[in-house]
């Protein structure tokens, strides 16, 4: 694929729009989520360490919930639409098992980077879809009890399903931070500024 060719065509508008909107809304979701975290830290409960106020949004628990549940609909709609369109129209751009093989066996460094990058951004989409599922399981544990009960997997280890759910949902943030860093570094190495231009709004 011509990622490094001199003429870098723009990516389709819909993917650029969803990409940008996702990033903005994700920041709102993460910051308001951390505000909710501070009302009762997932680690340590009432005595647990809280997140610095600088990283939070909403000012207090009810404010954080206003933002988190105010933007969850937009976040889910955008992500759902983006995923559906990507799968339908740009499937060959998404990572696949062949990329894992290329990563291990390809002699060409650019080819390996490209595969790594495809895997990274595809994994991000999976992590985000998972944040939606774990969020829904905590937002509506009575109505979506079957979703919530999936998180009983850690019960043999003495972690109840609610705590497993909270940890899983929170894990979205560190996972995404790592992946976004990898994504930026890889996209830079794959296509540099030209690629960034092609992707930015």
């Amino acid at each position: 694929m011509g990622h490094t060719s001199a003429r870098q065509p723009h990516h389709p508008l819909w993917t650029r729009a969803s990409h940008g909107l996702n990033l903005l809304v994700l920041i709102v979701m993460a910051a308001s989520g951390l505000q909710i975290y501070n009302a009762n830290p997932v680690f340590g409960g009432r005595g647990g360490a809280t997140v610095p106020e600088l990283l939070t949004l909403g000012g207090w628990l009810a404010g954080g919930r206003d933002w988190h549940f105010g933007f969850m609909g937009l976040y889910a709609l955008n992500l759902g639409l983006w995923l559906a369109l990507l799968i339908q129209r740009r499937r060959r751009r998404l990572g696949e098992l062949g990329d894992l093989t290329a990563l291990k066996t390809s002699a060409s460094a650019p080819r390996r980077r490209l595969s790594a990058h495809r895997l990274v951004y595809t994994l991000m989409l999976i992590v985000l879809a998972f944040s939606l599922i774990s969020g829904l399981a905590m937002y509506k544990p009575a109505q979506f009890w079957w979703l919530t009960s999936l998180f009983a997997f850690a019960e043999p280890l003495g972690v109840n399903s609610w705590q497993a759910l909270r940890v899983s949902h929170l894990a979205t943030i560190p996972a995404m931070v790592l992946l976004v860093v990898a994504h930026i570094v890889l996209s830079w190495r794959v296509g540099g500024l030209r690629l960034l231009r092609a992707m930015a709004l």
Partner: peptide
């Protein structure tokens, strides 16, 4: 982007907006 996000993250500046966001989304 970075600037606006740190404004967002800075919290206080936008706290007054929180209630409006809630009012707008809660009926649905």
């Amino acid at each position: 982007l970075g600037g606006s996000s740190s404004l967002l993250l800075g919290g206080c500046a936008l706290n007054g907006v929180s209630a409006a966001v809630g009012d707008a989304s809660q009926p649905l």
